[in-house]
Write a protein that binds this DNA or RNA. Structure first.
Length: 958
RNA sequence: GCGGGGAUAGCCAAGCUUGGUCAACGGCGCUAGAUUGAGGGUCUAGUCCUUAGUGGUCCAAGGGUUCAAAUCCCUUUCCCCGCACCA
C-alpha cells in the first residue's frame, strides 16, 4: 500500500509544482501570510519536527479554500556554530558523525565536500526543502527560500541593526560570558556543541567579602551576603595554596585557582607572594558590615577551586560551618596543632540572624540534628545546605540583629546588603561556573569579562509597552500564552546580541569584529520573504540592498528615483518590491515550538514594534508542543527517530499529516507511537475506500438522503467555525471520523443515490484537502471533478441543506436500536419478532403543557398535574396520567431552556418508524412491527406499551 | 529561583473559556458475531456496576458554590515543561 501512496504523493506534488499553484503573487484577493519559525541547520530532523511544519501547510491550504491569497515561505537558520562543529567532526573523520550522515541520506562521496561548513549548510538546506517539505507536499513558495548566511539576507540584518541603533536600542556595557582560555567565547548548552563537558553549568555570581587582616584582605566568596550578621569566624583550608594579589593597591588573599579566574574578570591584577593556608590560621580579621574581629580557623571543606577557597563562617545558617565548628571545638589535637586557644574557639556560638516559618532560630543546627549529620565531609551536607538555603530565601526574614535590615525578607535583604557593601568597598563581585567546563580543545572554560559587549535593550519601556499593546490585539494560541506573553515581555531584559569566536553569521555593521548572535538575526526576517524572491532570481544584487534601499521599500522613506540612482535598481523594480512588501506584510501567523515562548516570540514582537509602523505589526502567534519519544526525547534506540523520508514511505504522507493534526491538541506533548501512526494509515485508507465505494452507487433517493446532506452541511459549518481558531484537530475529527461514520450509516440505511453522494463529496473533499491533500486530489480526480482540489473553493452550503428534524429522527432511530440491543444483550433472546410502540398521544399533550408552563416559568409538580387533570383526554388516563405528569415536571424542572427546546421538537415517530421497518427487519433478521401505544386493538401481550413516552418508544422482543 | 502547564475510565487522549444535550468525542487494546481457505484485514456489536432498556457510582484527593459541576471557587498531594548569547 505504501508504495502506491508514494506514487500518488509524487504524482500530485509534480502536478502542484508544475502548475505553480504554490507560488505567491500579488493579486486583488485578501492575502494571508504565515510561516513556521525556520529550523536551525544542525543536521537531520526527525518525524517530530514535522508536526509544526505540517500545521502550517494545513492552515495555509485551508486559507486557500477560504479564498485567501496565501504566502507560505520557508527558510533555514544557519547562524551559529552547528555547521562548523559538524564540518570539523567530518574533517577529523569522526566515525559516529560519518555513520550518522551516511545512515541517513548523505552519499559517501559528499563527505569530502562537507568539511566546509558552508557546504554543510547548503547540503542540509537541500535536505530540508526536498526530503522534508516537498516530500510532505507543502504548498510553499520555494522561490522565496532564504538562509541566514546568504549575502542578501545578511544585508537585511545589517539594515535591521542600523534601525535598532537609530532607535536607541543598541547599548554597550561590560558583560561576563563563558570563554575558552584559548578560543574565546563558547556557548554552554546541554547539546555541548562548543564544549567537551559541563553543558549543564550555570554562571553564578559570588559576592566577595573582604576581611581586613594585618596589611591584607582575606577575600571570601559567598552566595549569601545577607548572612554577614551571623559571621562568627573565618575558614581557611590549611592544605591549600593561596596567593597574595595586588588589586588596585589593595592586597587580597585568594586561592591560586581563584586568582586565575579573576585575571579574566579584573584588570591590573598583580601576583605577589604565595602563602600556605596554614600560615593564615589563628589570625584575627575584621568581618565586613559588622566590623567585628573574628578568628581564622582551619577547615577541610574549603575547596580552593570553588569561589576564592576562603569562606566566612555563619554556623547559624550554614550546615557546613556549624558541623566544622563543632568538630573543631571538640578536637583538642587539631587546636593544639594550629596553636589555637581552646577557650577562644569554644567560646564561638552561632548567632541567630534569620527567622523562618517552621524553623528554630538556628536552622543549620536544626537541620543537621534532624538529618543526623555529625562529621565534616558527610555527603548529606549538600542536601542540608540546599534545604536551608531554599527555605531561608523564600520564607526567611532578617531578625533584629540585622539593624536597619531587620524585618526584611531574605530575598530583598540579600540584594540591598550586597549593594551597600559594594558601595563601601567591603565587597566585590566574582563570576564562576557551577561546574567544570572544558572546551572542545581541552582547555578550561572560564567566565571572562567583555567590556564592550553590545546588547539589544529589550528592557526599553516604550518598546515593551508597545509590544504588550500589540500582543493584546493579536491572535495568540494557546490562549494561556496570549495572557502570559505580557509577563514574558515585561521580564525580557537586555540581551547580548553579538559575539566573537567560532561562529558563522552576519557581521555587526558598527564593528565588524562582532558577529550577530543567533536569536538576534531571526526576529524581523519574515518581512524579508517578500524581497528574497528578487534576490534569488537575480534581479536584485546583495550589494544593491543598501540602507536607503530598505528604508524605501520597507519604511517608505526617500524617493524611488534617488534610491534607483544610488543602487542601480530600476524604479519599476523598486516599486514592485515596495508593493510586495506592503501587500504581504503584516505577517498573519508565526508558528513555532514551545521553546520559543520565552526567547524568539518576544524578540520577534519587540523588533517588529521597534522598527515597523503599526500597520505592519504581526497579527498572530501559534505555539505547538512536541512529539517526544517514550520517556522524553526522541532517540534512535527507542524507535522514534526514524528519518522523515523513511516514515513518509512507511506510513504515507497523508497518514502522517492526519496523525499530526488529530493525535492530540497542538498544545500538548505527544509520545511517538508506531502503532498509533499505523492506525492513521488505516484511517486514511478506509476513508478513501469508503468514498470510492460510494462513488459506485447508483440507486434511487430515499429518506436518508436528506439526512446525509444535512449531516455533511452541519459539519461544514462546524468546521468553518472551529477553524477560526485554527483547530485542525476538530476539522480532522469532523471529516475523518464523524463524517466517515455518517457515510457508513448512510450505506447501512440503504442510501445509494449518486446525486446525494456527489453533493456529499463536494462538501467533504475540499475539507480533506488541508490535511490529506494527496488523497483528496486523487478522489477529486477519480470522481471526475475538474481542476485540482488544492485550488478549489470552500464548500457551498445552502441554507436548507441543514434539516435538524431529519438529524433528530436518525438519532431517535439509533437510540431505539441501542435500547433494543441492550434488551437483547441482557435477555439473551434471539428475536423472532420485535414490537415497537410509540408514545400514546395524550403523553404528547402533557409534554406540551409542561413546556408551556416552563416557558412561563410556572412549571411545578402541582401546576402540571393540575393542568393535565383539567384536560379531558388526559384525565381519562387516571393515575397513570398524574404519575407521568409528576415525573415529567420533576425532570423538566432540572433542564435548561435550550435543552427543553430540543426535547420539545417532536416529530411523527410512528410514521418515521414505519418507514424504517424494512431496514430494521434486515438488521435484526426478524419481523418488526410498530404500533401506537393505547390505540384500541394494539397487540401488547406483555403490557410493554405503557412504557412508551415521547422520544422513546417501548420495545417488546420475542 | 523565575515563569508556565497538567492529573479524565486498561492505555493514549477530547471536553473545562461560555456549568445542564457528559457514563463523558475519538483512537488503541480487549470480547463476541459476520466476512475470509486459515492468519491478517474489513464490517457489526460490546467493553464502570446494575438491569428487558428511562437506575447507580464516576472525571487525582478533600471541601464549597448551584436546582444542576469533569467544567466555577478553596485546600492538599503528585507529575511535567521553558528560561537568553542554545536554536
Amino acid at each position: 500500500m505504501s508504495s502506491r501512496s508514494s506514487e500518488l504523493e509524487e504524482k500530485w506534488q509534480r502536478r502542484w509544482y508544475s502548475s505553480r499553484i504554490h507560488e505567491a503573487e500579488m493579486d486583488d484577493r485578501p492575502k494571508f501570510m504565515l510561516i513556521f519559525a525556520y529550523p536551525g541547520v544542525t543536521g537531520y530532523l526527525h518525524v517530530g519536527h514535522m508536526r509544526g511544519y505540517t500545521y502550517v501547510d494545513a492552515i495555509a491550504r485551508y486559507k486557500r479554500l477560504e479564498g485567501f491569497n496565501v504566502m507560505f515561505p520557508v527558510g533555514t537558520h544557519a547562524t551559529g556554530n552547528g555547521a562548523i562543529s559538524l564540518a570539523a567532526r567530518i574533517a577529523r573523520k569522526d566515525q559516529k558523525t560519518i555513520d550518522y550522515l551516511c545512515g541517513n541520506t548523505c552519499p559517501l562521496e559528499m563527505l569530502d565536500e562537507l568539511k566546509d561548513p558552508i557546504k554543510v549548510v547548503e547540503f542540509f538546506n537541500d535536505v530540508y526543502v526536498n526530503q522534508y517539505w516537498k516530500r510532505f507536499g507543502f504548498l510553499s513558495d520555494w522561490r522565496r527560500f532564504t538562509s541566514t548566511i546568504n549575502k542578501d539576507y545578511q544585508m537585511f540584518i545589517r539594515w535591521q541593526f542600523r534601525k535598532l541603533m537609530q532607535r536607541g536600542l543598541l547599548i554597550q556595557k561590560p558583560y561576563f560570558a563563558p570563554a575558552c582560555v584559548s578560543h574565546g567565547p563558547v556557548a554552554i548548552d546541554a547539546s555541548e556543541t562548543d564544549i567537551q563537558c559541563g553543558g549543564g553549568a550555570e554562571t553564578v555570581e559570588y559576592t566577595l567579602l573582604k576581611f581586613k587582616c594585618d596589611d591584607m584582605y582575606l577575600v571570601a566568596a559567598t552566595l549569601r551576603p545577607e548572612t554577614v550578621f551571623g559571621q562568627t569566624n573565618f575558614w581557611v583550608n590549611p592544605e591549600a595554596d593561596y596567593v597574595k594579589v595586588n588589586v588596585n593597591g589593595e592586597v587580597w588573599v585568594v586561592s591560586e585557582a581563584a586568582f586565575n579566574k579573576l585575571t579574566y574578570q579584573k584588570d591590573g591584577l598583580e601576583r605577589l607572594e604565595e602563602l600556605k593556608g596554614v600560615d593564615l590560621i589563628g589570625k584575627k580579621c575584621v568581618a565586613p558590615m559588622v566590623h567585628r574581629d573574628i578568628l581564622t580557623l582551619p577547615a577541610d571543606f574549603c575547596d580552593p577551586n570553588v569561589g576564592t577557597g576562603l569562606v566566612t563562617s555563619v554556623p547559624s545558617d550554614s550546615p557546613d560551618d556549624w558541623i566544622s565548628l563543632r568538630a573543631l571545638q571538640k578536637d583538642d589535637a587539631t587546636l593544639l596543632r594550629f596553636g589555637l586557644d581552646p577557650d577562644d574557639v569554644r567560646a564561638i556560638k552561632p548567632i541567630a540572624i534569620i527567622e523562618m516559618k517552621g524553623w528554630s532560630s538556628l536552622p543549620a543546627v536544626e537541620v543537621t540534628e534532624k538529618m543526623g549529620i555529625e562529621a565534616p565531609g558527610d555527603p548529606r551536607l549538600e542536601d542540608a545546605k540546599k534545604l536551608v538555603y531554599k527555605e531561608g530565601f523564600h520564607t526567611g526574614r532578617m531578625n533584629e540583629t540585622a539593624g536597619q535590615y531587620a524585618g526584611l525578607p531574605v530575598m530583598d535583604a540579600k540584594e540591598r546588603m550586597k549593594q551597600v557593601m559594594l558601595a563601601s568597598g567591603e565587597a566585590d563581585v566574582m563570576y564562576d561556573l557551577s561546574e567544570t567546563v572544558t572546551c572542545r580543545c581541552g582547555e578550561p572554560v572560564v567566565i571572562k569579562r567583555v567590556d564592550d559587549q553590545w546588547f539589544i535593550d529589550y528592557a526599553n519601556l516604550e518598546v515593551t509597552e508597545a509590544a504588550k499593546e500589540q500582543a493584546r490585539s493579536m491572535d495568540i494560541f494557546p490562549a494561556e500564552y496570549h495572557t502570559n506573553i505580557h509577563a514574558v515581555l515585561e521580564w525580557f531584559r537586555e540581551r547580548a546580541c553579538v559575539r566573537q569566536g567560532n561562529w558563522i553569521g552576519t557581521r555587526f555593521p558598527f564593528d565588524e569584529k562582532w558577529i550577530i548572535e543567533a536569536i538576534s538575526d531571526s526576529t524581523l526576517y519574515p518581512l524579508y520573504y517578500a524581497i528574497s524572491k528578487f534576490a534569488n532570481d537575480g534581479r536584485l544584487k546583495a550589494e544593491q540592498m543598501t540602507e536607503e534601499f530598505f528604508d524605501l521599500v520597507v519604511l517608505d522613506k526617500g524617493s524611488f528615483e534617488k534610491v534607483s540612482e544610488v543602487t542601480g535598481v530600476s524604479v519599476e523594480l523598486l516599486h514592485q518590491i515596495h508593493d510586495e512588501v506592503h501587500y504581504w506584510y503584516p505577517l498573519d501567523m508565526n508558528l513555532g515550538g514551545k521553546e520559543h515562548m520565552t526567547v524568539h516570540f518576544p524578540a520577534f514582537l519587540m523588533n517588529h514594534v521597534a522598527i515597523l509602523p503599526p500597520e505592519m505589526l504581526p497579527k498572530g502567534i501559534f505555539v505547538n508542543w512536541y512529539i517526544v519519544g517514550k520517556g522524553g526525547k526522541i532517540s534512535k534506540s527507542k524507535g522514534g527517530a526514524q528519518p522523515i523520508p523513511g516514515a513518509a514511505e512507511k506510513y504515507g504522507v497523508d497518514a502522517l499529516r492526519l496523525y499530526y493534526a488529530h493525535i492530540a491538541s497542538p498544545f500538548a506533548d505527544v509520545e511517538w507511537d508506531n502503532e498509533a501512526v499505523e492506525s492513521y494509515t488505516a484511517r486514511t485508507e478506509k476513508m478513501e475506500r469508503t468514498l470510492l465505494d460510494l462513488m459506485t452507487l447508483n440507486g434511487m433517493p430515499n429518506e436518508v438522503d436528506g439526512w446525509l446532506i444535512s449531516r455533511m452541511a452541519s459539519r461544514v459549518l462546524r468546521v468553518r467555525d472551529q477553524m477560526k481558531g485554527y483547530d485542525l484537530r476538530s476539522l480532522a475529527t469532523e471529516i475523518y471520523f464523524e463524517a466517515f461514520n455518517d457515510l457508513r450509516w448512510y450505506q447501512r440505511r440503504g442510501g445509494s443515490n449518486a446525486v446525494t453522494v456527489a453533493r456529499a463529496m463536494d462538501m467533504l473533499l475540499p475539507l480533506m484537502m488541508p490535511i490529506t491533500p494527496h488523497t483528496a486530489e486523487e478522489l477529486w480526480e477519480s470522481s471526475g471533478r475538474n481542476g485540482m482540489v488544492s485550488s478549489a473553493a470552500f464548500p457551498q452550503v445552502k441554507e436548507n441543506d441543514v434539516d435538524l428534524a431529519k438529524e433528530r429522527a436518525e438519532e431517535y432511530l439509533k437510540a431505539m436500536m441501542n435500547d433494543a440491543n441492550e434488551i437483547l444483550k441482557v435477555t439473551g433472546i434471539k428475536p423472532s419478532r420485535i414490537m415497537l410502540y410509540t408514545s400514546a398521544t395524550w403523553k404528547y399533550r402533557v409534554m406540551k403543557m409542561a413546556l408551556d408552563l416552563s416557558a412561563k416559568n410556572e412549571l411545578q409538580i402541582p401546576t402540571l398535574t393540575k393542568a393535565a387533570m383539567t384536560d379531558q383526554e388526559v384525565r381519562g388516563h387516571g393515575k397513570g396520567a398524574s404519575d407521568y405528569a409528576r415525573k415529567l415536571a420533576e425532570e423538566f424542572m432540572k433542564r435548561s431552556a435550550s435543552e427543553l427546546e430540543r426535547i420539545g421538537q417532536s416529530f411523527d415517530e410512528h410514521a418515521f418508524l414505519s418507514g424504517c421497518l424494512d431496514f430494521l427487519s434486515e438488521e435484526y433478521n426478524c419481523h418488526v412491527e410498530v404500533h401506537v401505544a393505547g390505540e384500541p386493538g394494539t397487540p401488547d401481550p406483555q403490557g410493554k406499551s405503557r412504557q412508551a413516552v415521547p422520544g422513546r418508544p417501548a420495545i417488546l422482543v420475542e
